[in-house]
Nucleic acid binder design. Structure first.
Length: 880
RNA sequence: GGGUGAUUAGCUCAGGUGGUAGAGCGCCUCCUUUACACGGAGGAUGUCGGCGGUUCAAUUCCGUCAUCGCCCACCA
């Protein structure tokens, strides 16, 4: 073994070795049962970030642990097509925004995305290999695979047949830049300061001679006045009660609309008068439905004002288009230009009462960052309420457990207040909805056109066209747990590994993904008895890794830490380039470069995968936010180095004392017994904490045992035994060293696979007793039975270690060099302690560099107050 | 507004079922000793956010306040 531990020298070839030998494939011979994890499929939009690396490491730790425990393990991998995110990315990257989304571009774009997918998939898989993920690559899947499509269609058809999927015209979240609808979850509300205007609406006089009166409404969106259908006040608002039932004239458009009352109006907000724009506001939409008001759509799909307004009744049925309500000057303007102009014109008319700045909350599309426009559109919905009952039940019954438990309540509160899920998207990249229309817009749902024609006996003369919309990407992701295993086919994988055991994911996608998987799985997948199947038995919810200062890592902040850079290292100049790549502001670039130059003057050193993985296991506390911490990462690398060096020592020892200790009754000395007792305790704790998924505690326990017990004490004992050269002792120590090191390697292997495999192989070279090829074939270390009173051994070791520390202290206080040979005088020591001193004299002398231990009674020697106290005895150290 | 989490050594964080506070880094002193200076030996440092309560005993349980965070809802 080389004297220096260099991660890159061992990591790359070991992964190839594992892969070639197919160690990661399911091995149905194992008797301890099956164990499966499906990966949360990374989006093909980009390479893996620290969060992925973190979560995947935890998954790999679990998988490797279960494998060593004798389970037949399988880790399903794959990637997600990530509908919106990917299409946005490719449109931006390769197509000019203006020419996109024309039907003749569709093929080009899809082709480009597939090329991109291939490239990214390669990169992502390579990263996963670097991380040491024990994945069976032959089973890799993609959410747009043909088999996935089968599962998607099967699910859609079943849900449609059972009347849980329906098409409807409703107010939906419209992203004008993407020109698609998005679901409630994809809307992100941001606190912003915006302008609020008070506008006068003239009340229609019931008598020509009456004075002109006005109702003043408050609005942040004056451009929507073209879609006003009423003014509403609270029925008990004494200020406005008298106007209820009268009419106002909408400024600029000269439409007459009624003044109505509604209990939902808040008298304290704005002026207490609300303009009702049902086609562009969710609350107004509800008010319109309650009060049987019409709805007016005023925007085109790109957010520009329509020249002819679309009128609908309160059920969403289109009534007529009217083209004389919008003045020519507003034609073809986008919503913000309209807003500006409306205010300008209204002011000109003297109808603008007030303008002020307020703090309010505005909905944005989470992928595009554009303000969402509520619009009346035809969309496909999944009625989630009936499904949620099954989902809630399976979690309540404990068939699915959340870890940490608190997330259960997050899940319940969302499930109990769930709204119908809008599953259609006006995009190209995704699963096209399996619905066909004839000329009369009759709907046919099925696997393909031929099947439908046959089933409904539709002649070839009738043209059928497929629904152009695709499904929300989360619809297919929601099937991932079972569809990736082969469902609806009863494949070996599905039969053996479903329901899956553990899902490791972040709290940020509990609603997007975890909940939807539970919803769809419990409804769609049943066991032989017809009981709902859960997609996974446990969900481990991890925290989010932030930078050293607790800030979210983001490209625009220039604070992203790339897991590969930690593994392989990166030079200063490359690091600066990488972190400033997505930033345009020169000052920001400068400050980021300065920060990097100051903190990483030599770039980032190569820590290697194992160090990173050991570090990750320390980070896996049940916290919501996890701060990056270089000093701990460094410590983790030091740990690997220590393991390397300690192993080297053990090998030197084993080689030198070449006694065969196999199949032989071994006499264990005091330190041997002690370290094996400690190892037993470690094994028990390790198992317990692994089952609790407290990898931080596992790592801490392993560290503590290995460093503080094995290296600091046991190896020191072994050196003394080596000096003593007593054959019986040497045998015992050689045996124990081997047993303990092997156990440590196996226990550490799930966390730090490379270095443990490497050392294991080295160990095999020196002292081979079996024909296993890899540490992956080792079994979990069993607890050793010790032929001694464990309690007494531990007590005496405790006494011994305390004594050594006391002696070291006396040495330091007496200003002796650590290796000076000294005489130790003990005066008036009690019997019990004297017994121990005599019993462990040899170890004490060697470990503390004592020439002699001398027991004195009172009279023989005066210590002149220079003595220190040990166990009540006076103690003096003198140089030879 | 509803929910939820956090507050422990200078920094980053552990502390299942209450019983004299732990780790890593950092700091101070000493040591290049034949596995390791990415090391060894020794040391300093905490009224465990504030205030109340339960208890023989509370960092741990309950209440309350303060500060910070997250999630959900919300374009008047």
């Amino acid at each position: 073994m080389k004297t220096k531990f260099v991660p890159k020298n061992i990591e790359s070839y070991l992964y190839d070795f594992w892969e070639k030998k197919k160690f990661f494939s399911p091995n149905y011979k194992n008797k301890e049962g099956n164990f499966c994890i499906v990966i949360p499929p990374p989006n093909i939009t980009g390479e893996l970030h620290m969060g992925h690396a973190f979560q995947q490491t935890l998954m790999d730790i679990i998988i490797r642990y279960q494998r060593i425990k004798g389970k037949n393990t399988f880790w399903q991998t794959g990637t997600d097509h990530a509908g919106i995110a990917t299409q946005v990315l490719i449109e931006k990257k390769f197509f000019k925004l203006k020419e996109n989304r024309k039907e003749n571009n569709k093929k080009k774009l899809i082709k480009k995305i597939w090329e991109w997918k291939k490239k990214l998939n390669f990169k992502i898989n390579n990263q996963m290999r670097c991380l040491g993920n024990s994945i069976d690559w032959s089973k890799e899947r993609f959410t747009l695979d043909k088999d996935m499509s089968i599962a998607v269609r099967k699910s859609f058809i079943k849900l449609y047949k059972n009347k849980l999927i329906y098409k409807s015209k409703k107010l939906s979240n419209w992203d004008v830049s993407l020109r698609t609808v998005i679901s409630d979850l994809e809307v992100e509300y941001r606190q912003v300061s915006s302008k609020m205007w008070n506008i006068c609406y003239p009340i229609v006089k019931d008598n020509i001679n009456n004075e002109q009166e006005f109702l003043v409404i408050s609005t942040t969106r004056p451009e929507t006045l073209f879609g006003d259908v009423a003014i509403s006040v609270h029925p008990n608002d004494i200020r406005y009660k008298k106007y209820i039932g009268k009419f106002v004239c909408v400024p600029l458009t000269n439409r007459i609309i009624p003044i109505i009352s509604d209990n939902e109006i808040d008298v304290n907000k704005g002026t207490g008068c609300v303009k009702i724009t049902p086609a562009h506001d969710f609350k107004d939409y509800e008010i319109a439905k309650r009060n049987n008001l019409p709805m007016i759509n005023i925007f085109k799909k790109n957010g520009k004002l329509r020249s002819s307004l679309q009128f609908f009744d309160s059920n969403g049925d289109q009534l007529f288009d009217v083209n004389f309500f919008v003045p020519l000057i507003f034609k073809n303007l986008n919503r913000y230009e309209v807003r500006k102009k409306v205010i300008f014109e209204i002011n000109k008319l003297g109808l603008l009462k007030e303008e002020k700045i307020i703090q309010n909350v505005v909905p944005y599309g989470d992928r595009t960052g554009t303000i969402i426009e509520p619009m009346l559109t035809d969309q496909w919905y999944l009625n989630t309420k009936p499904l949620s009952i099954l989902a809630i039940k399976s979690v309540k019954k404990g068939n699915i457990k959340f870890i940490p438990d608190k997330y259960k309540n997050v899940f319940f509160s969302w499930m109990e207040n769930i709204n119908d899920w809008c599953i259609s998207r006006q995009l190209w990249w995704g699963h096209q909805i399996p619905v066909w229309y004839d000329k009369k817009n009759n709907i046919y749902v099925g696997n393909d056109e031929n099947e439908i024609r046959e089933k409904y006996k539709i002649s070839k003369d009738i043209i059928l066209t497929q629904e152009k919309d695709v499904l929300d990407t989360w619809f297919s992701s929601g099937l991932w747990c079972f569809a990736s295993l082969g469902w609806p086919k009863q494949t070996d994988l599905f039969k053996n590994f479903y329901p899956t055991d553990v899902l490791v994911t972040g709290f940020d996608i509990i609603f997007f993904w975890v909940s939807r998987m539970i919803l769809l799985s419990t409804y769609l997948v049943k066991d032989k008895c017809g009981n709902s199947q859960v997609p996974f038995k446990k969900v481990i919810v991890t925290g989010l890794i932030r930078d050293e200062f607790g800030k979210k890592m983001s490209k625009s902040q220039g604070n992203v830490i790339d897991p590969l850079d930690i593994i392989h290292g990166i030079s200063l100049s490359d690091l600066i380039k990488k972190r400033t790549k997505f930033i345009s502001n020169k000052e920001t670039i400068q400050s980021i470069s300065n920060f990097i130059k100051f903190n990483f003057p030599n770039g980032i050193e190569a820590f290697g995968t194992d160090s990173l993985r050991f570090y990750f296991s320390f980070l896996s506390t049940p916290k919501q936010d996890i701060n990056w911490n270089y000093s701990r990462l460094k410590f983790c690398k030091n740990f690997c180095t220590k393991l390397w060096n300690a192993s080297r020592f053990v090998f030197i020892y084993i080689k030198e004392i070449n006694i065969n200790t196999e199949n032989k009754k071994i006499n264990l000395s005091f330190p041997d017994q002690w370290i094996l007792i400690e190892l037993n305790e470690l094994i028990k704790k390790y198992d317990f904490e692994m089952k609790n998924y407290r990898f931080d505690v596992v790592a801490q326990n392993l560290y503590d045992f290995f460093w503080n017990k094995f290296c600091d004490w046991y190896l020191e004992f072994s050196k003394i035994i080596r000096i003593n050269q007593k054959k019986i002792e040497l045998e015992g120590t050689r045996y124990s060293l081997k047993k303990v090191l092997l156990a440590i390697l196996i226990l550490l292997h799930p966390i730090i696979p490379y270095i443990t495999e490497y050392i294991w192989k080295e160990m095999k070279k020196i002292d081979s007793v079996h024909n296993k090829e890899s540490i992956l074939e080792e079994s979990f270390p069993s607890v050793f039975s010790i032929d001694a009173n464990e309690k007494i051994i531990k007590q005496e070791m405790d006494w011994f270690q305390k004594k050594i520390i006391e002696l070291r202290n006396i040495r330091i206080k007496s200003h002796f060099h650590p290796k000076d040979m000294v005489f130790l005088y003990l005066k008036n020591i009690d019997c019990k302690n004297k017994k121990y001193f005599e019993k462990y004299e040899n170890y004490l002398k060697k470990m503390s560099f004592l020439e002699e231990i001398l027991f004195l009674s009172d009279e023989k020697m005066e210590f002149n107050n220079k003595f220190k106290k040990i166990d009540g005895a006076e103690c003096l150290m003198l140089k030879k």
